[in-house]
Amino acid sequence: MIKVSSHSIRALVVYLSHLGVPLRQSLDLVGLDKASLFNEHSLLPTQVLESLYTFAEQNLGLKDIGFNFGQTIEPDRWSTLGYIAFTAPTLRQALQQQYKFQSLVGNLGSPFIKLQGEYTLINWVPAYACSHHTVEEIITGWVALARKLSAAPVIPEKVFFAHACQGDERVYEQYFQCPVLFSQDANGVLVGSELLEVPLIKHEPQLHDLLCQHAEQQLASFTEAVPIEVMSQYMINRLSVKVPDIEEIAELMNLSVRTLQRKLSDAGTSYSQLLDSLRKKMAMDYLQLEHYSILYIVEMTGFSEQSAFQRAFKRWTGMTPLQYRKQLLADKAG
Rank of each mutant, 00 (worst) to 15 (best):
K3L: 14
V4S: 02
S6T: 08
S8N: 12
I9V: 15
V13Y: 05
V14S: 12
V14D: 12
Y15S: 14
L16P: 01
P22N: 04
L27G: 03
N39E: 04
H41V: 07
H41S: 12
S42V: 03
P45D: 04
V48E: 00
E50V: 01
S51N: 08
L52D: 00
T54N: 12
A56M: 03
N59W: 08
N59F: 03
G61D: 06
D64T: 15
F67H: 00
F67C: 01
F69M: 05
R77W: 07
S79Y: 01
I84E: 00
T87E: 01
T87R: 01
Q96T: 07
Q98N: 11
K100S: 05
Q102W: 01
L104G: 04
L115D: 14
G117D: 08
V125I: 14
P126F: 04
A127Y: 01
A127F: 03
Y128A: 13
Y128T: 11
A129P: 02
A129F: 02
S131V: 05
V135M: 11
I139E: 04
T140I: 11
W142S: 11
I155L: 06
P156K: 01
A162V: 09
A164G: 13
Q166T: 12
Q166C: 06
V171E: 10
E173V: 05
Q177S: 14
L181H: 08
F182V: 05
S183W: 03
S183M: 09
A186R: 08
G188I: 02
V189W: 00
V191M: 13
L196A: 07
L200T: 04
L200G: 06
H208D: 11
H208E: 09
D209R: 13
C212Y: 05
Q217Y: 15
T223E: 15
E229M: 10
V230C: 15
M231W: 06
S232T: 15
N237D: 13
K242I: 12
K242Q: 15
L252Y: 07
R258Q: 14
L260C: 04
Q261L: 10
D266F: 08
D266N: 13
T269V: 05
S270Q: 08
S270L: 10
Y271V: 03
L275P: 02
S277C: 13
M282V: 09
M282N: 05
A283G: 15
L287H: 02
L287S: 03
Q288P: 02
E290W: 03
E290C: 05
E290L: 03
E290A: 09
L295F: 06
V298T: 08
F309Q: 04
R311T: 15
W316C: 05
T317P: 04
P321G: 12
Y324F: 15
Q327M: 12
L328T: 04
A330F: 02
A330P: 00
A333Y: 08
